[in-house]
């Protein structure tokens, strides 16, 4: 902490005109090194917090759930991205639909989604959840986006855990770009 302050202090001396002690460290974010203060927009700070504590609600329906479990376990270690599995929709930030969605299951998923608190996101994992996959039949929903607002599609049959991580990063990018979603007047 001490060292950090010293470095920032040096930056003040080098990069800033005398009289002003505001340093722009990236677009839209400034620091006052002497006061240990960061100035930024509420959008940025809230989105930053949200994207780094995304709690997934797993909805394993088929073989994709096995890859999902691999993503959870130690080798791919999803905890490092701030993801903690939640088995209650009330505590989850986004839902991962992993697997073949049948028409019998569709109202159940919709109900789980409706129980989630805002802001909520949907990640469709695997070909079946994205488009129905090879199951173009009477009982399979042709893509979970027919009844859910999907944010990220992860293709693959099943997608590798790395692909799922890429999907999470895409979701994080999306959340970081959000505007005014924290507000009641959104």
């Amino acid at each position: 902490m001490e060292e950090g302050s010293a470095e920032l202090g040096m930056m003040t001396n080098q990069g800033v005109e005398h009289g002003s002690d505001l340093v722009e460290i990236e677009g839209g974010t400034k620091v006052i090194p002497a006061a240990n203060t960061i100035i930024t927009s509420l959008d940025k700070i809230i989105n930053w917090g949200r994207k780094n504590s995304l709690w997934p609600m797993g909805f394993g329906l088929a073989c994709c759930a096995i890859e999902f479990m691999s993503w959870v376990s130690s080798y791919h270690d999803f905890d490092r991205m701030g993801n903690i599995p939640r088995n209650s929709p009330r505590q989850a930030d986004f839902i991962i639909i992993s697997g073949t969605v049948t028409k019998k299951m569709a109202p159940v998923i919709r109900r789980v989604y409706d129980q989630m608190a805002e802001p909520r996101y949907v990640l469709a994992m695997g070909s079946c959840a994205c488009s129905g996959g090879v199951f173009n039949t009477y009982s399979v929903v042709q893509g979970v986006d027919t009844f859910l607002p999907v944010d990220v599609y992860v293709p693959g049959c099943p997608p590798r855990p790395e692909a799922l991580i890429e999907g999470i990063i895409k979701l994080q990018d999306k959340i970081q770009k959000e505007y005014f979603r924290w507000s009641p007047w959104r």
């Binding site: 019998k104 109202p107 173009n136 039949t137 009477y138 009982s139 929903v141 027919t146």
Partner: peptide, 16 residues
């Protein structure tokens, strides 16, 4: 293969 024509499962329709 795609189910009876003109008939849809109610639960799925409600979700839609």
């Amino acid at each position: 293969l795609k189910g009876l024509e003109g008939w849809e499962y109610k639960g799925h329709e409600e979700a839609k």
